[in-house]
Computed example of a mutant assay.
Amino acid sequence: MSEYQYYEFTVVDQALTARQRSELRSLSTRAEITATSFVNTYEWGDFKGDPRTLMERYFDAHLYLANWGTRRLLLRLPKAALDPATAAEYCAGDSASAWTNGKHVIICLNREDDDGTDEWDIDGHGILGSIIPVRADLAAGDLRLLYLGWLRCVQSGERGDDEPEPAVPAGLATLSAALTAAAEFLCIDPDLLAAAADGSAAASASQPTDAQLRQWVTGLPAGDKDAILAALITGTDGHLRGQLLHRYRVEHPPHPSTPARTAGQLLTAAADRRAERERQLAERQERDRLRRERSAAAERQRRLDALAADQGSAWQQVDALIATKKPREYDTAVQLLVDLRDVAERDCDPAPFHRRLTELRATHARKPSLLERLDLAGLDG
């Protein structure tokens, strides 16, 4: 397979009509089209549709994946659920952008291949499903996805070192499963994300308690309460809960835990974290290596002790192995001879070993394969 492209579009707020599905079918005869989704893969050729146009007309979410490194996530929300100005604060680059269309705002988070390495073992099925819950969270005022988009811009070098970060949402240190899936899909540097999380309040800081919500609702104007009840009863607003939580968060913004940092400071902090992590890994690997070496040395000493107690049988085994004239048995015989030599040197009595080795080489002088193995092992008589 020379290439792989995966396209998936999903509707959340309203199912596709039969006419809309027919319009989509004209773009592809191979696509899997349902009342809520459009999925197609390409191993050659390209999709005839324009994802931007399809998002504006039909869909609420789109995921694109190509094995040359491009990854793209688009989400469409009503302007009442996501203020376009808020989206613009975080999404202003190639890796994160936003635009409005009618009553909607659409955000696009994009990752291009950073190192030129193709990704062959990939499959797009199921990824959008694991990410899509972030749309409801975003509609409810959870801005962590937008901040991830801004981090993606920082990581891609689209933000100047002196550019300050936007407002840091709470809970960056404890991402939900959907946000984690989004961060992994966009290949956001874990060290950069961890550095950003240092300036993020705990997730609980942005989660109002039931008591706080009840008190807030009690203080709402009567007209607002009537509108909320009407929308709830008629079911005309699928984002009602999210909009209310969003409104509460806007009216009760969390206090920033740290002053705004710059993109350069975050990159430096990420580099420091990476260096520290790599240092700790190297130390751990060195400790493991030394432990393995000590264990191997102790095991070898036990083997040599056993060999020293019955060297006569060992020499008989060497002769039997050589007699087979098999290369694998030659290797075993040579290793046994190395052990016998080490026993002799350890016991400070190498002369008898070297006499027997000289005799062995003379006896098998017509076995060049064996003699070559002995030479390579340093058993030269």
Rank of each mutant, 00 (worst) to 15 (best):
L148F: 04
Q155L: 06
E163Q: 15
D161F: 12
P169Y: 01
R144T: 07
G157R: 09
R144L: 06
P166H: 10
G160I: 11
D142C: 07
G171T: 01
R152C: 14
C153K: 09
D142H: 09
G157T: 07
D162K: 14
D142I: 04
A167Y: 05
L145E: 03
G160A: 15
E158G: 02
R152W: 11
R152M: 13
L143P: 00
R152T: 12
A170N: 01
V154W: 03
L146S: 04
A140N: 10
G141M: 02
L148E: 01
S156F: 09
D161Q: 12
D142Y: 07
G149V: 06
V154M: 11
G160T: 15
L145Q: 02
G157F: 06
C153S: 14
G141H: 02
V154R: 02
S156V: 06
P166E: 14
C153L: 13
R159L: 10
Q155Y: 07
V154L: 13
R144K: 05
Q155S: 05
A167Q: 12
A170Y: 00
L145S: 13
P169F: 02
G160H: 14
W150A: 09
D142N: 14
L145D: 08
P166V: 12
A170E: 00
V154S: 07
P166W: 05
A140V: 11
E158L: 08
A167W: 05
L143R: 07
D161R: 15
C153F: 04
